[in-house]
C-alpha cells in the first residue's frame, strides 16, 4: 500500500467534465442545438401572420404571447432526433473513444478502477444531457423574450399563466426531456464498451434511437411500447395543463431508471472482464 492512503477519488469526475468541455465537438453540438430556438423564433417573428392555433410544432402559436414558450417548442422539436444524436455522440464515445485514442489503458493502469471509470463516464454523459437541454431552454428563453416579450400564455387546458408559471412549466419540460435522455445515455455507455471504434458506437446508438421510435409507431407492437426508452419522449403535454398531470412524468422516471440499471449492469458486466488490447 502507498504510504499516503488518503484518496482523491473525486478528481477524475472533475477531469472528465473538463475534458468533455475542452473539446470543440462538444461546443459545436451545443451551438447547433442553440440554433434551433433561434431559427424558430426569428422565422415566426419575420412572418407576416402569427401561426394560428394548432399550426406547426406544438405551442408555436403561444410564442407570440410569451416568448419563453420558444424554449418549450424548441425542446419538443429537438427531442426526437437532434438532441438524441448529440447524446449518442457523447455516450457512444465514453469508453470506445478512450480505447480508440489508446488512453483507456493508461487510465486503467493509473489506476482509475474499472467501475469508477464507468460511473465517472456515465455521470459526465449525464452532465452533457443537462447541458444540451439546458442550452435549448436558456437560448429559447433568451431569444423568445427578446423578440416577443413575456406576457400571458394559454395552456392546453385553456388556463392562462403568467411569467413565473411559464418559467416553471418550461423548466419542467426541460427536466422531462433531460430525464428522457438518461436511459439513452446508459444504452450508449453499454454499446461503447463493446467496441474500440467510437464512431461505430455513436452510429449504433443513433440507429437504436430511430429504430425505437419507428417501433413506437407500429400499432401491431402496442404491447412493446411501454418498454421502449422513447415511449415518453413526447409526453410533455401533461406538464402544460392546470393542474399538472404527473402520471407520464413519473412513469418515465421509472422507465429511464430501469434502463439505467439494466444497461449500467450490462456495461459493468462487459467492461469489468474486458481485455483492453487497444
Amino acid at each position: 500500500m502507498p504510504a499516503d492512503t488518503r484518496t482523491h477519488g473525486g478528481a477524475l469526475l472533475g477531469s472528465e467534465v473538463r475534458v468533455l468541455f475542452r473539446r470543440w465537438r462538444t461546443w459545436a453540438m451545443l451551438a447547433a442545438l442553440a440554433t434551433i430556438p433561434i431559427l424558430m423564433a426569428v422565422v415566426v417573428r419575420l412572418s407576416s401572420e402569427p401561426p394560428g392555433p394548432g399550426e406547426g410544432p406544438p405551442f408555436l402559436d403561444q410564442v407570440t404571447n410569451n416568448g419563453m414558450f420558444v424554449a418549450v417548442t424548441a425542446l419538443v422539436v429537438t427531442t426526437p432526433l437532434f438532441l438524441p444524436l448529440t447524446i449518442a455522440v457523447v455516450s457512444g464515445d465514453t469508453i470506445a473513444g478512450e480505447a480508440g485514442l489508446g488512453t483507456l489503458r493508461y487510465l486503467l493502469v493509473a489506476p482509475a478502477g474499472r467501475l469508477r471509470l464507468l460511473v465517472v463516464k456515465y455521470v459526465s454523459a449525464c452532465v452533457f444531457c443537462v447541458a444540451a437541454s439546458g442550452t435549448v431552454l436558456l437560448v429559447g428563453w433568451g431569444i423568445g423574450s427578446a423578440l416577443f416579450g413575456t406576457g400571458e400564455a394559454t395552456l392546453l387546458s385553456g388556463d392562462t399563466i403568467g411569467v413565473g408559471d411559464a418559467v416553471v412549466r418550461s423548466l419542467l419540460v426541460g427536466a422531462h426531456v433531460t430525464i428522457c435522455m438518461l436511459g439513452l445515455a446508459a444504452v450508449g455507455l453499454f454499446i461503447s464498451t463493446l467496441t474500440d471504434a467510437g464512431v461505430g458506437a455513436m452510429a449504433a446508438v443513433a440507429v437504436l434511437t430511430i429504430v425505437a421510435q419507428v417501433l413506437g409507431q407500429l400499432e401491431q407492437l402496442a404491447w412493446l411500447h411501454p418498454w421502449l426508452f422513447t415511449h415518453h419522449w413526447l409526453s410533455f403535454a401533461d406538464l402544460l395543463r392546470a393542474p399538472i398531470v404527473w402520471t407520464s412524468f413519473t412513469e418515465n422516471v421509472l422507465l429511464q431508471a430501469a434502463y439505467v440499471a439494466f444497461f449500467g449492469a450490462l456495461a459493468y458486466g462487459r467492461f469489468s472482464t474486458k481485455d483492453v488490447l487497444s
Binding site: D4, H8, A11, R22, L101, Y106, A110, A112
Partner: peptide, 22 residues
C-alpha cells in the same frame, strides 16, 4: 497515447487525476 486536443501538461494532469492516491 494522449488526448490530441489537450496540451502536454493537461494530458499529464488528466492521467494523474485518474490515480486516486495522487
Amino acid at each position: 497515447a494522449f488526448y490530441p486536443f489537450l496540451s502536454g501538461a493537461d494530458n499529464l494532469r488528466r492521467l494523474d487525476s485518474a490515480d486516486r492516491y495522487a
